[in-house]
Computed example of a mutant assay.
Amino acid sequence: MDKKVYLITGAAGFVGYYLSKKLLDQGCNVVGVDNLNDYYDINLKYTRLNNLSNYNNFSLYKVDLSDKEGIMILFDTHRPNIVVNLAAQAGVRYSIENPDAYLQSNMIGFHNILEACRHYPVEHLIYASSSSVYGANEKVPFEESDVVDNPVSLYAATKKSNELMAHTYSHLYNIPTTGLRFFTVYGPMGRPDMAYFGFTDKFFAKEPIKIFNNGDFENDLYRDFTYIDDIVKGIVGLLHHYDKEKLYNVYNIGNNQPVRLMEFIQTLEECLSNSLGEKIEFIKEFEPFKKGDVPATYASTDKLHKAIGFKPETSLKEGLQKFADWYVSYYIKKAEKIN
C-alpha cells in the first residue's frame, strides 16, 4: 500500500474525480480540495463526490485556491508528498465574459499552491496547463518546443502564466514541477460546457446545435479529442517521474489523432443512436468562427511517450459510446423513472 499523501485540487471536477478514483483504487491516501463552484451543474460534482466518499482513504476539503491561509493550513495538516493541481476556472469563451474569475483562480490560486509547495516541500507538483497555450500556431502537430507567446484567449494566457510561474519556483526553490497541456478531454461525467456534452443536451431539448465553422467542411475545425482514461493513465505515469537534472518540465497529453469537427458530430450521432436504439440526427446551425477559437489542436505526444511510454488507447468511437451510454442512463432513464 502506497502510504504517500496525494493532494488533488479540483477533486470534484472531471479529471480530478477520475484521477482520485484511480489512486483510491490503488490504495493511495487522497486529500481532495474543491470550492464546489456552480460554473456548471453542481449536482454532477456531488455525484462524483458521492462516489469518492465510499473510500475510507479519501477526505475532501471545501477550500478556494485563492484562500491562501486555508491552503497553507491544509498543507501544514496533511504534508502532502505529491500535489496534482487540476482546479482552475475552465472554458475559453467564458474567459471573454468573466475575466476576473480566471485571474482569481488560475493566477492567484496557482500562486498559492506554489507558495504552499515552497513552505511545505513536496516530492512533485503536477499541474494542468492546456493545449490553448499554442494559440493560433499553424504548425502541426504542436510540440512542447514550439513558441507559445501568442495566446488568443485570457484562459490560454493564464495557463501560459502558470507554466512561467512553475518554471520560476522550480528554479528558485528546487521544486520538481510538471505541466500537462491537455487536449480536449471527454468522457462520462464530463464537463457540461464542452461541445460533445452541450450537443447532447441540445438534442434532448429539441434545440439546434451551433457549429462554429461557417459551414465550411473543407476547412473544418480539427480537434485532438482525448478520452479521460488515457489522460489519467498519463498523469499516473508521471506522478513519480521527473528529471532530477531538469526539475521543470511540460508535456502534451493528447490523442495524437485529430478529427474534423463534423466527423466528431457524426460519430456522436451514431453513438447516441446506439444508446437509444433509434436513429437520431442533430438539428444543425452553422455560424462564424468564435473569437478565442483556434482552427486546429493536434498534439505531438512523442515527448511523453519517450518519458513514460505513453500511448493513448481509446478510439473516438469507443470513447463517445461510453459517454452516450452514461448520458442516457444518468439523465434520460433516470428522468423516465421519476415520471
Rank of each mutant, 00 (worst) to 15 (best):
L49N: 07
L49C: 04
L49Q: 06
N50D: 12
N50A: 12
N50K: 11
N50E: 13
N50C: 10
N50S: 11
N51G: 10
N51F: 07
L52T: 09
L52Y: 06
L52Q: 03
S53M: 14
S53I: 05
S53N: 14
S53Q: 14
N54L: 14
N54P: 12
N54K: 15
Y55A: 06
Y55T: 03
Y55D: 05
Y55S: 08
N56T: 11
N56V: 04
N56M: 12
N56Y: 13
N57Y: 11
F58Q: 11
F58L: 05
F58P: 13
S59Q: 14
S59F: 09
S59P: 13
L60N: 10
L60P: 12
L60I: 10
Y61M: 11
K62H: 11
K62E: 13
K62Y: 00
K62F: 06
K62Q: 12
V63D: 09
V63L: 09
V63E: 07
V63P: 06
D64A: 12
D64T: 09
D64W: 01
D64Y: 04
D64F: 00
D64S: 14
D64Q: 13
L65T: 03
L65P: 09
L65C: 04
L65Y: 02
L65I: 03
S66N: 13
D67T: 05
D67Q: 08
D67C: 06
K68D: 06
G70K: 01
G70P: 08
G70Q: 01
G70I: 00
I71T: 01
I71C: 06
I71F: 02
M72Q: 12
M72L: 14
I73Q: 15
L74E: 04
L74A: 05
L74M: 01
L74K: 04
L74N: 03
F75I: 01
D76C: 13
D76Q: 15
D76I: 02
H78P: 08
H78N: 09
H78E: 03
H78Y: 13
R79L: 09
R79F: 05
R79S: 11
R79W: 02
R79V: 02
P80V: 00
P80H: 01
P80Q: 00
P80K: 00
N81E: 08
N81A: 00
I82E: 01
I82T: 02
V83C: 01
V83F: 06
V83I: 08
V84W: 06
V84I: 11
N85D: 11
N85L: 03
L86W: 04
L86K: 08
L86H: 00
L86A: 09
A87D: 07
A87L: 02
A87M: 04
A88E: 11
A88K: 02
A88W: 03
A88T: 07
Q89E: 13
Q89N: 10
A90K: 06
A90C: 09
G91W: 00
G91Q: 05
G91E: 00
V92M: 10
V92R: 04
V92D: 09
V92I: 12
R93F: 14
R93M: 15
R93C: 14
R93Y: 15
Y94K: 15
Y94H: 15
Y94E: 15
